[in-house]
Amino acid sequence: MINLTINGLHVAVEKGTTLLEAARFLGFPIPTLCHMEGLSPYGACRLCMVEIGEAPRAKLVSSCTYPAEEGLKVRTTSSRVLRARRMILELLLASCPQSKTIQDLASAHGIRRQRFRQEYEDCILCGLCVRICEEQMMAKAIGFRSRGENRSIGTPFDAKSDVCRLCGACMYVCPACQLRCTYNEPEKAICGGCANLTPPCIEKEQFDDMMCYMDPCVACEIKKD
């Protein structure tokens, strides 16, 4: 077992436990967007930052990817952590204002102003869809392309994927696109946020054999005739 303290509380966890798991075990809330149980930790959204170590060498790390270490002192709500978290939420909100999840998180953290130029992006590149497609659906239909500001998620060559089974898991896990997916006009229903897939709901004739995780379908409100 590994002994560490989180916000002054002592906890012993098994080797390989992440700081996020340890903190949640103790009941300390840490917001996350790119984390999901059952998927490998990725560390993309940077919301789960916690402070470790002691001044002057204290630093912030992403708790979802950082393994518990013997004797580590972790602070989940220090002023440095909160400042970082608020700035990241402000950045998220400025880029993806339509996401209910992000709106709620921002509101809970007291984000009251918007200092960056407003954008309307579909995707925060958290990679949940990529990981669920690979790790749970064993499909590997979508992946990351390019890098930096041009990074995006989609299928190779932006063509309809040969390996996609239209399971809809990617949409199910997406934290950014929920709101827009409830449109019921087909062209708007295409959720570019997670993938350039044809959403299952549009191919009505295939609706019967679809392995849709959304039951009832949260992606669209089209009822089969």
């Binding site: 560390g43 940077r46 970082a84 880029s95 590149l125 390019s146 890098r147 930096g148 500001e149 041009n150």
Partner: peptide, 15 residues
Amino acid sequence: KNESCGKCFACRKGT
């Protein structure tokens, strides 16, 4: 902003 790998939201959006 072009050379960031784009994985960390803070780095990608921050730059």
